[in-house]
Nucleic acid binder design. Sequence first.
DNA 1: GCGCGTAACTACGCTGCTGTCATGAGGTTA
DNA 2: TAACCTCATGACAGCAGCGTAGTTACGCGC
Lengths: 161, 161
Amino acid sequence: MARSEEGFRGPQVCKVVGITYRQLDYWARTDLLRPSLADAHGSGSQRLYSYSDIVELKVIKQLLDAGVNLGQARRAIACLRESGGDLATANLVLGTQGTVLARSGEEIVDLLRGGQGVFNIVPLAAVVDEVDAAILVLDRPGTAAAGPEPLPEARGRRAGS
Amino acid sequence: MARSEEGFRGPQVCKVVGITYRQLDYWARTDLLRPSLADAHGSGSQRLYSYSDIVELKVIKQLLDAGVNLGQARRAIACLRESGGDLATANLVLGTQGTVLARSGEEIVDLLRGGQGVFNIVPLAAVVDEVDAAILVLDRPGTAAAGPEPLPEARGRRAGS
DNA sequence: GCGCGTAACTACGCTGCTGTCATGAGGTTA
DNA sequence: TAACCTCATGACAGCAGCGTAGTTACGCGC
């Protein structure tokens, strides 16, 4: 159960993200999100997930909580990967026509005005914050998760690209 | 197949909304949306849907197209019914915390700022327009559906409450 | 090299949602 | 009343997305 120095293993990821191991396994098998550090190779091996993997998993989890199915979540993380800007300041906007990253609130209002169809909006800053807080309580199980802002140690682990 | 003077029957509703009869039937059986004019009473009867029923059905259809499951759509139309304001100018906002009707774009930006979690936003004006256009081509099958704005005849059929 | 814990793998089943097909009951017309 | 058309209804199938339980095998400590 000890933390590996480079990456997170399956059961740890489940606790941080807030999903079951069955979901993580299903998503890895169906190519929704494979671990980018080390994939499984047989029945006793270990999957190793990176920090950005966990952020993407948390986005999926948030979408599921909002009632969005996995098919739409699949398109969401596909857009999240190809447009690799600064995640913490953007909003992920899933429309019927396509999927975009919106940098400001005005951009979202513009999309609504010209827009037909439904939009699913994910504020990525909140996602990153929640992931950092969850990783902190994984490191120190005694610490409460209600800290106003996470320590820079955890935030520094964020992937640049 | 002729239009009943007061209300729309099942197969007509399917064409207007763009769903299958199986879906309409399933939604009526599971209490997602029963026809408000006449429910089914046995195997040879007919369901009669009102205009506002069709608008709500179109909202559900849009949500499904956006990847939202029926459970969330259930909460959506529940909110749509209890807050019975002017539909055509509002946006239906489904959050993880709850469901609201937002009147302006700034209201949505405020929700995004203070908000954690994902939002599903339905612009109701576009929904009403699409329903009106679909009803028009139901009346005159030769008319194309690409008209810039629907005729006032169909818009007048909208329910006040 | 040898146990042992952990984690991946497999199989089975369940629920929600939908398609397909056959059946049955009203309503309508002759 | 008999034929006929229209919908609602029922039974079955099928897929997505998991839960549960048992099995298997890597990797670490010794």
